[in-house]
């Protein structure tokens, strides 16, 4: 009779091994989210209390970073005019993968109080993929922290796939960007 205590280990396929490694990587990634704060609007004022001793974001392993290359999560805090959207797309494409985006406030969701402005876009997720939204105008600091915890949960459940969607649906994103911006290339005195 065969023993029930011991089962022969099943050799994992390459896909399964990759998945295991990816899960290990996800553990590190969700416990050390470095932010790039793209402080375009008023929601940015909620970040100082979230970072300092009142709510202490560092206990989640989050911290501010200086450049897009070093950062993991892009915080878009508030409304985006066309001019900033152009820079935001540049910034987003410079970040090293895997990368995540959190949109703050109602401006990034549906335009907020700027829904009828000629210079401000209405939906951020038409142009770059957004993993998590924090609603409110402006959101409470509790809501902001909750948004970060949600993002961590999403990474844990392998649902924060915005950066993959940006690859697979690249044509759709590019079309939306060109519809809104005309051309994504930055043309000003400093880029000539």
């Amino acid at each position: 009779m065969e023993s029930t205590k011991y089962t022969q280990p099943v050799a994992l396929s390459k896909k399964q091994v990759d998945r295991k490694w990816w899960e290990i990587g996800d553990f590190f990634r969700r416990n050390s989210l470095w932010m790039l704060m793209y402080c375009t609007g008023c929601c940015a004022i909620e970040l100082p209390p979230a970072m300092t001793s009142a709510y202490d974001m560092e206990r989640l392993g989050m911290g501010p970073m200086a450049t897009p290359r070093q950062a993991d999560v892009l915080l878009v805090t508030g409304y985006l005019s066309l001019k900033t959207l152009r820079r935001l797309i540049y910034t987003y494409e410079q970040m090293s993968e895997p990368k995540y985006v959190v949109g703050f406030g109602s401006c990034t969701i549906n335009g907020g109080i700027y829904h009828d402005s000629h210079a401000v876009i209405n939906q951020l997720d038409q142009y770059i993929p957004v993993d998590s939204y924090v609603a409110g105008c402006m959101p409470n600091t509790e809501a902001v922290m909750n948004g970060f915890v949600d993002l961590i949960e999403l990474i844990k459940n392998k649902k924060a796939n915005g950066w993959k969607n940006y690859h697979t649906n690249n044509a759709w994103y590019k079309k939306n960007q060109i519809d809104a911006l005309g051309e994504v290339r930055i043309k000003d005195e400093f880029h000539q």
């Binding site: 206990r59 392993g61 090293s96």
Partner: peptide
């Protein structure tokens, strides 16, 4: 010192291994 809770003591290990797990340009 700043009346915060602070990160885990092994946070720096997590940071480094996370960086090694990312794709680079």
């Amino acid at each position: 010192l700043q009346k915060r809770r602070g990160p885990k003591w092994y946070q720096e290990f997590i940071d480094i291994f996370k960086l090694l797990s990312k794709r680079a340009t």
